[in-house]
């Protein structure tokens, strides 16, 4: 074993990349849950985004269009969930699970002809001046654009939720849908929009896996990333700032175990591969004190 083979600059740089898909999926789910909807289908939307993004990127040669297609694909799929839970008043836990099972099947079917193909490359950007700072530059300022877009989305979500009127309405809908309804706010529409946003973000997260991090399409490639995103929302107590922290913490665990595998630690690879999931459980145990939005997971039916 040779721990000195782990380069700290590379370690922190790849941490940011490893955290980005989880960050994207989790920030979308945070908005959905703030609106009082529990969508357990993140994994299904993420993998559908991964495959649609990959197909569009291969067909057009443009990763940017790929990401746009992934966001659209995720959002479209999420509307199935939205229609069932908001208009047909189905159980959100069961419908979310159905969305995951459906998405896994759908993506495998769509991606059949795309196994083994390489995605068009998505070059890193070198932020001028900042990118030249020693140590900090290579860690923070020499990544692909999606790393920064993810952080910007998190910032925008924070601003929207806590500094805008529409965000206040969304939180009101999530805290107490009957009161929000009585005040004249459209609970269903707010929730459908939130669900679409969640789907688009999950799609982006999935496409980040298939277009940047791997970058290839394989069946079931999200390997639980969507579920980990759900856990990070709980860890973050439904706050965007802590969500970014949680995603980076998780990225750290992932990269560390990969580095340990490469350094040839005397622990079998399989046990190291368990660590992100075990870390997620540990985080859930420590952070389960947060208060969830008041109407989370409850069915809204406007009785007349």
């Amino acid at each position: 074993m040779d721990l000195s083979s782990i380069n700290p600059i590379l370690f922190f740089a790849s941490l940011m990349v490893a955290a980005t898909p989880i960050l994207l999926a989790a920030i979308g789910e945070l908005v959905v849950e703030r609106a009082g909807v529990l969508n357990l289908g993140v994994e299904g939307m993420m993998i559908t985004g991964a495959v649609t993004g990959f197909i569009v990127a291969v067909a057009t040669g443009s990763p940017w269009l790929g990401f746009a297609g992934a966001a659209l694909g995720g959002a479209l799929l999420s509307q199935v969930f939205g229609f069932l839970t908001q208009y047909l008043l189905s159980n959100q836990v069961a419908t979310g699970l159905a969305l995951t099972l459906f998405g896994l099947g759908l993506s495998a079917l769509m991606g059949q002809g795309y196994i083994g193909i390489k995605a068009p490359s998505f070059p890193d950007i070198h932020v001028p001046i900042l990118g030249d700072i020693p140590v900090i530059g290579p860690i923070v300022f020499q990544h692909d654009p999606m790393v920064y877009i993810g952080l910007l989305i998190a910032l925008a979500v924070w601003f929207f939720l806590f500094r805008s009127r529409a965000g206040l309405v969304l939180r009101a809908v999530g805290e107490n849908h009957d009161a929000a309804h009585a005040l004249g706010y459209n609970v269903r529409r707010t929730r459908m929009l939130a669900i679409a946003f969640g789907g688009a973000c999950a799609g982006l997260g999935g496409a980040y896996l298939s277009l940047v991090r791997v970058p290839q399409w394989t069946e079931g490639m999200t390997a639980g990333a969507g579920w980990i995103a759900l856990a990070i929302v709980v860890f973050a107590s439904w706050r965007p700032g802590r969500l970014v922290l949680g995603a980076y913490l998780f990225g750290g665990v992932t990269v560390l175990q990969l580095n340990l595998q490469a350094a040839g630690v005397a622990i079998p690879v399989e046990y190291l591969s368990m660590s992100p999931y075990l870390a997620t459980i540990a985080v859930l145990v420590i952070m389960s004190a947060g208060r969830s939005p008041g109407s989370l997971g409850r069915i809204f039916h406007a009785a007349r």
């Binding site: 047909l88 419908t95 459906f102 495998a108």
Partner: peptide, 21 residues
């Protein structure tokens, strides 16, 4: 393709939840 069956099974659960209203 094998995935079509998984898709069919997921679809079945969706339909059940929808009809259940």
């Amino acid at each position: 393709p094998a995935a079509a069956i998984n898709l069919l099974q997921g679809m079945l659960l969706f339909n059940l939840l929808a009809v259940d209203v």
